[in-house]
Structure formats: C-alpha cells, structure tokens
C-alpha cells in the first residue's frame, strides 16, 4: 500500500513534469535548441500569480491565474523576439549560452522582486480524499485533472486542426514548410504561447501544492529535460510518458534511497539516456546526437 501511495504521488508529480516537458520539447522540435530559460517561465507563472493575489490587487487565486499566464506568455514571446529570433542563424551553442544567460537574468529578477525566501499562496487545499490507506489531496486531484485537460487539448490541436498540422510540418522541416507557404511567424508564436502557457499553469499548480522559491524553475527544468530525453527530443507524447516515468521513479526512490538523493534520479536519467539511447526509449532508428 505504501508503494501504491508512492506511485500515485509519482504520477501526479510526473503530470506536472509532463506539462513542462511538453513545452520544452516543442521549442526543441521547432527551433532545435535547448531553451534553458524555460524553467524561469515556470517560476514566473507562479510568482506573477502571487503578485496578483497579494495586497495591491488581492484577486482570488482563480482569477489571478489568467493575468499570470498572460504575463508569462508575454515574457515568452519577448524572449523569442529580442533574443532567440536575432540569433536563429547562429550555432546551437550560441543559442544555448544565450538562454542560460537569460535564465540567470530572469531568476535573479524574480529574486530581486520577491526575495529568496520560501513563499506560498494563502489557500487551503489540504483537504483530501481517502480510500483506505491511500490519501489524495484535493490539490493533487486538481493538478492531475488540469494536466489531463491541457494535454488532451494539445492532442486535439495537433491532430485535428490546420494549425497543429502546420506545427508538425515546421518541426519536421522548417525551410520546406516555409516554401510550402506555411506562415512561419505565426507558427513560431504559437509554439512560444503554448510552451509559456503550459509552463505557467504547471508552475502555479506546483506552487499551490508546495511553495514558491526562485530556484523552482531550474530544478523543474532539469526534471523536464530528463523527461524530454526519455521520450526522445521533439517527441511530444514521449515527453508526456517520460514526465510520468520520472515522477514515479523519483517518488519510489524515496523508499530505497535517502530523500536527499531524490533529485539524483533525474540527473542519472539524463546521463544514462544521453549515453545509451539519445533518441529516447521510443526511437527505433539511430538517434541524432
């Protein structure tokens, strides 16, 4: 029973990693670089929700979510406009270093504005449901439901709409897609909007369940990255399964290892996947490195 509880906790944590990983892998799929600043979008979503719920505005959390997500999307689009677009003809390393710089800038800006202490929203969602020895809090349940809703929406978007088709085409071959008359600018903006929205929503949910701190972005980014590698870079469904796998593995590890090593799992997954299956567990052809 103890293990079942750990698995359930893992799936819920994993669904959040999946939300982050999906955005990260979409950006990788289209722009071919690892966006380090994706983590800060997570933190930014959570912190701007905090801003809208605290005194000068004091909105209830439900209403604060919309403007918080909007803020994060703006930052995501600005990132693209000011930094990544001008560099799009540079090497992948240039983009990676620029995104590391951007991540450092944003993280410190958050710390500048909110301090580095642990903060939390004033919401009480600890009430839970019990089935025998298994306990699921209401918060965890809403995390899971939100993740399912968002990922279903993504599935619908990718498979049933023209925009989704265009997105997949651009991810496959940007030049060719442009030649075929697909509006690249619009598709690129869509990718950033989706990635930022998913990151912000996940960040707010995670902050409701635990707490806010400036480092939350980096930590979750690395887990999301492990999920991306598990699923195969650029593979959206792989990222989903990868996220849940990381969440479950991490929570189960607590039963064996000391809790201080919980984060170790994600790093080990990153190393092992890169070394042995760089194309992800679902790739059947030889992966690109």
């Amino acid at each position: 029973m103890y293990y079942l509880q750990l698995v359930i906790n893992g799936i819920i944590a994993g669904s959040m990693y999946a939300l982050f990983a999906v955005g990260l892998t979409m950006v990788y799929g289209v722009f071919r670089f690892i966006n380090f600043a994706h983590g800060e979008l997570i933190a930014l979503g959570a912190y701007s929700a905090l801003f809208f719920t605290s005194p000068p505005l004091s909105l209830p959390l439900i209403w604060a979510t919309a403007p918080a997500v909007a803020c994060t999307v703006c930052v995501g689009l600005l990132q693209d406009r000011l930094v990544f677009q001008p560099l799009c003809h540079g090497t992948r390393m240039t983009l990676l270093i620029a995104s590391i710089g951007l991540s450092y800038l944003l993280r410190n800006a958050i710390q500048f504005g909110f301090g580095s202490d642990l903060l939390s929203y004033n919401v009480d969602l600890a009430a839970g449901y019990e089935w025998g020895p298994i306990i699921v809090t209401r918060m965890q349940l809403s995390m899971l439901i939100t993740a399912v809703v968002f990922l279903t929406f993504l599935y619908w978007l990718f498979t049933r709409t023209m925009l989704g088709k265009a997105l997949r085409a651009v991810a496959d071959n940007m030049e060719l897609a442009g030649i075929m008359g697909i509006p690249l600018g619009r598709v690129n903006r869509t990718v950033w909007i989706l990635a930022a929205t998913f990151a912000a929503v996940g960040g707010i949910l995670l902050a409701m369940d635990t707490s806010l701190e400036p480092m939350m972005g980096v930590i979750n980014l690395l887990k999301a990255f492990a999920a991306v590698l598990l699923g195969g870079p650029g593979n959206v469904w792989g990222a989903l399964i990868g996220g849940i796998a990381i969440g479950v593995a991490e929570n189960l590890s607590v039963a064996v290892l000391s809790p201080g090593y919980k984060d170790f799992i994600a790093f080990a997954v990153i190393l092992v996947m890169l070394l042995f299956r760089p194309g992800g567990i679902f790739s059947f052809q030889k992966g690109m490195r």
């Binding site: 930094v83 001008p86 560099l87 540079g90 240039t94 983009l95 270093i97 620029a98 590391i100 710089g101 951007l102 991540s103 450092y104 800038l105 944003l106 993280r107 410190n108 800006a109 710390q111 500048f112 301090g115 580095s116």
Partner: peptide
C-alpha cells in the same frame, strides 16, 4: 542590501545575453 546579490546576477545574465547577441 539584500537586493545587491540578485542585482549582480541580473547584470551577469544580461551580459551573457548581450555578448551572444553583439559580440560572441
């Protein structure tokens, strides 16, 4: 005083970004 460290961080982050943009 407590804002000094984050300010340093912001300057360094901005420098990295600008370097990549202007003088890699």
């Amino acid at each position: 005083g407590r804002h000094v460290a984050p300010l340093q961080g912001m300057v360094f982050g901005l420098m990295l970004v600008l370097l990549m943009l202007r003088r890699p």
